[in-house]
């Protein structure tokens, strides 16, 4: 039932682990994507696009914060989760950790599009979460995410001609396999518990199917090829991610590409160098 679980005390050990894994996936995706987005600050093609992407980064950081805050129910603190976890304890998809191809705005836009369609679907699958705090926070996040997807689609449509088309295609070739890791489980057993306990009301397989049936036809409409296109039945809605379509590192299981170590090193450096054991708060904890 929606929001029936008010506290982790009502859960058994497996369910607690599953809740933790689900929240880490959500929070880490948002946090790491925001870290990458901020690399575009003062470097985007125009002032307007710069502000738009910074705006997204700020939104995603805020969302990460809402999820880390729920993780505090399980005894964690935000600064431990962000600054004190080892890189291989992070559970984000490899899509969000990949560095941008040097100065390639198409890369940022393709990533933004692939991610935000997935984000929209997974938020829908959390609307009726059995865990009250999750269900409560979804609406707040959704109100900002609608704009994100629209922004990404607008850019995709406008870049899809001439040289822009080539760049989009390159970015799709690079990023599509990594985007598929958004739907990989932390591990099968944990994933099963996430759904059985009603924390998320749809399985990752179902979400992947919906995602592919949204993104692939959209990309196809812009003349962009995807490795999966032949296997997507536009009307029949049948799709399964094949092992050979996935990259070696999948993020969700703690395996990450080398680029992640560099990024992690960078954003935790000041904290380590100053020998911190807590983070400065400029805002009260998100409600």
């Amino acid at each position: 039932m929606v929001g029936e679980i008010e506290s982790p005390e009502e859960l058994d050990a497996d369910e607690r682990d599953a809740l933790e894994a689900l929240l880490q996936r959500l929070a880490d995706d948002e946090y790491v994507l925001a870290e990458r987005y901020t690399e575009w600050q003062v470097r985007a093609p125009t002032l307007e696009s710069d502000l738009a992407l910074s705006n997204n980064a700020q939104d995603e950081l805020g969302h990460a914060r809402l999820w880390y805050d729920v993780l505090e129910d399980l005894g964690y603190e935000e600064h431990e989760l962000v600054y004190e976890r080892d890189p291989d304890e992070w559970r984000h998809s490899t899509l969000v950790e990949r560095p941008f191809a040097e100065g390639d705005w198409a890369d940022a836009i393709v990533r933004h599009y692939l991610y935000d369609v997935a984000e929209e679907l997974r938020l829908e699958a959390l609307e009726e979460s059995s865990y009250a705090k999750i269900a409560d926070r979804v609406g707040k996040i959704q109100s900002e995410e609608g704009y994100h997807r629209e922004h990404a689609e607008n850019w995709m449509e406008r870049l899809a001609t001439g040289e822009g088309h080539e760049r989009l295609q390159d970015a799709v070739d690079r990023l599509f396999p990594h985007a598929l890791t958004l739907f990989e489980p932390v591990d099968e057993q944990t994933e099963e518990t996430i759904v059985d306990a009603g924390f998320r009301t749809e399985s990752l397989e179902d979400l992947a199917e919906e995602w592919v049936n949204t993104t692939v036809p959209f990309l196809d409409g812009l003349g962009l090829e995807t490795p999966a296109v032949e296997r997507v039945h536009f009307d029949e809605y049948e799709f399964e991610v094949l092992d050979e379509e996935l990259p070696d590192k999948r993020g969700r299981d703690g395996s990450h590409t080398d680029a992640w170590n560099d990024l992690h090193d960078e954003f935790t450096r000041t904290y380590r160098e100053l020998g911190r054991s807590e983070a400065t708060k400029i805002m009260e904890t998100a409600e």
Binding site: E48, L51, A52, N154, R158
Partner: peptide
């Protein structure tokens, strides 16, 4: 705002 068309102009204006 600088924008190529009305739709993008509305989006950028909303942010800025």
């Amino acid at each position: 705002v600088h924008a190529p068309d009305r739709e993008m102009a509305k989006q950028f204006a909303a942010i800025q």
